[in-house]
């Protein structure tokens, strides 16, 4: 394992993040605050408690997930797309590093940035609502796994994309709907039965449910199933990336 290389990539990527730290943080904090004002205070005041939790608190885990997933994907996809775009991938491909080391560096950095933002949003939400975290260890674990797996997905998107439009396409067309329909702002038990069944095919449901469980101790789907789903998703993404580097798809001619 060429750990020096992993560290070099990680540092290089984090430097990019810290160069634009203000930009990186202002927008998620601002949009989260808006959600709290609109959903939590304005609409939420007319909604009864969901599963015994005030609506403002109920949406916190979903909001964090929404930002973390979006950030993980956009950081990771841009992180590898940009070198591809300006042609600096020649150096990665000619360096004595395996695909695991490249992924560890890029995805590690993207996941760290997403984590960072997740934590900031959690801190922001303490300002607006009163929440307790029932299972802090599980919460951290879920957060880490989510950041990692969606950074892996972002990495795949970044390699796949051959222009900036495509880079925005998947997050916009696929991920945002899945996250919104994944129970960020409601419990799927509130849906009509047919939609409940359909929701079970949405992988994000398992994530948000598990994450919410670590806050409030109640979940839409069993917690074990949530963990299994996210683990399976991570393994799937890793397998795709392994294949990409083995065949050189979109990287090597």
């Amino acid at each position: 394992m060429n750990l020096t290389a992993v560290r070099a990539i990680f540092k290089f990527e984090m430097a990019r993040f810290f160069r634009t730290i203000a930009q990186s943080l202002i927008s998620p904090v601002l949009s989260t605050s808006l959600y709290f004002v609109v959903f939590g205070a304005a609409i939420g005041s007319r909604i009864e408690e969901v599963e015994g939790i005030s609506y403002g608190a109920f949406i916190v885990p979903g909001l964090i997930m929404l930002s973390v997933i979006t950030q993980a994907i956009s950081n990771a996809s841009f992180g590898i797309y940009f070198p591809k775009f300006i042609g600096t991938t020649y150096e990665l491909l000619s360096a004595p590093v395996s695909f695991l080391e490249i992924v560890a560096g890029y995805v590690g950095a993207a996941a760290t940035k997403a984590m960072f933002i997740g934590v900031i949003i959690l801190a922001t939400s303490f300002v607006f609502v009163d929440i307790q975290i029932a299972h802090p260890v599980a919460m951290v674990l879920f957060l880490i796994l989510t950041c990692l797996s969606f950074s892996l997905l972002g990495f795949i998107i970044g390699i796949w994309a051959s222009n900036f439009e495509q880079l925005q396409l998947v997050p916009l067309l696929v991920v945002t709907p899945l996250v919104f329909l994944g129970g960020s702002f409601y419990s799927i038990t509130m849906l009509p039965p047919i939609w409940q069944t359909i929701s079970l095919f949405n992988p994000v449901v398992y994530l948000i449910s598990g994450f919410r469980w670590s806050f409030f101790g109640s979940a839409d789907v069993p917690i074990g199933l949530s963990l299994l789903a996210i683990a399976a998703f991570t393994v799937f993404c890793l397998a795709v990336i392994w294949w990409i580097f083995k065949t050189g798809w979109r990287l090597r001619q």
Partner: peptide, 12 residues
Amino acid sequence: STVQFSRGLFGK
């Protein structure tokens, strides 16, 4: 930093 990055990438 780009020169240092290259060195690190090659494991030095």
